[in-house]
Design a protein around this nucleic acid. Structure first.
Length: 313
DNA sequence: AAGTTACACAACCGCGGACCT
DNA sequence: CAGGTCCGCGGTTGTGTAACT
């Protein structure tokens, strides 16, 4: 029954691969392919390695057409968009970036891109008070002031999937739902707003629909119930920050994935943002955007407008 | 120049679903 | 169908090196 054990862990070599091992593996695969069996491969190739290790080495390093080195701005954007939508599904993200491996992208995100984004948030502080105040100007008494349960949420939380329940549960407005800050792509719906859509935001916020709203402001975030518009029956959140995209141009907005209710248990329901430029629409299409002012959308929605606080407050 | 710290990247580990017997 | 392994994935750790003191 079953198959033979993967490998004798006591006798396999670990650690960095030598050039000799690399060439043995490459040569073997070029001649024979992987044969669909990585476990048997190292023995056949004369390597004292675990099959898993061989597979990893091949896929991440030796495979032809692997691209190493700096990521382009376009690649950054794709990664941001996809991360915002599907979370840390590196293999899926890698599939959209020819020549890049999931491991590569994962490392790039953890070591560079995440920091890049975090750094970009810093100078945005001076807007925070206005925007934060604005958030709570809604028709609902419950939302007239920052809710008691509202707590700061560091960007760390946005960038790494965690359980958000301790931040949000109990303060979710009328539908009493819990939500993850980001949902997986399948559940994501939303729309983006830019400077032309102030009324939409205003209506959403002011009409006090009684649902859930979240507001993220540079390094902290606050939740508020009853934020979004009457036509929006699902959760919404407003996201601020990522100043590098916003500082000079109000038409640059952040595109965010919408939270789907009742998904707190989903590991990948993490918050993230997508750096968005009008000239470069997101690769991830978030459809069925909310209708905004007085609209009837029942979508999960999200929106951001860097100029909102200035124009509407 | 030596020691320490931070960073980047490669590799490993453990888990869950798919697959095999 | 059950029990076992294989495969692929994502998170974490280890290692080499650059930057700093």
């Amino acid at each position: 029954m079953g198959r033979a054990p993967c490998c004798d862990k006591a006798s396999v070599k670990k650690g960095p691969w030598s050039p000799e091992e690399d060439s043995k593996l490459k040569e073997y695969i070029h001649r024979n392919g992987t044969g669909g069996n990585w476990i048997a491969l190292p023995h056949k190739a004369g390597l004292k390695r675990c099959g898993k290790s061989c597979r990893l080495r091949w896929l991440n390093y030796l495979r032809p057409n692997i691209k190493h080195g700096d990521f382009s701005d376009d690649e950054d954007r794709i990664i941001c968009n996809l991360f915002a939508t599907i979370g840390s599904r590196w293999s899926i993200i890698a599939a959209q970036l020819p020549g890049r491996t999931d491991n590569d992208i994962k490392n790039y995100w953890n070591t560079k891109l995440k920091k890049k984004l975090m750094h970009g948030l810093q100078p945005y502080n001076h807007h925070s008070s206005k925007q934060q105040q604005l958030l709570f100007v809604t028709a609902s008494p419950a939302a007239a002031a920052p809710p008691e349960a509202a707590r700061p949420l560091s960007l760390q939380h946005l960038l790494s999937p965690h359980d958000y329940s301790h931040h949000y549960s109990g303060s979710y407005g009328s539908n009493n739902s819990t939500m993850s800050v980001l949902s997986a792509a399948a559940g994501s719906r939303g729309f983006l707003l830019n400077g032309e859509h102030h009324t939409t935001i205003t209506s959403c916020l002011d009409s006090g629909g009684g649902g859930l709203g979240l507001y993220f402001d540079e390094l902290c975030a606050t939740t508020s119930s009853s934020v979004h518009g009457q036509g929006l029956t699902a959760e919404s959140f407003v996201f601020g920050g990522f100043q590098q995209l916003l500082e000079e141009d109000h038409h640059k907005a952040l595109l965010l994935a919408a939270g789907a209710p009742n998904q707190l248990d989903q590991q990948y329901s993490a918050a993230a943002s997508s750096c968005y430029d009008e000239a470069k629409p997101p690769l991830v299409s978030l459809t069925d955007g909310g209708n905004g002012a007085g609209g009837t959308s029942t979508s999960n929605s999200f929106f951001y407008d860097s100029s909102y606080s200035n124009n509407e407050s």
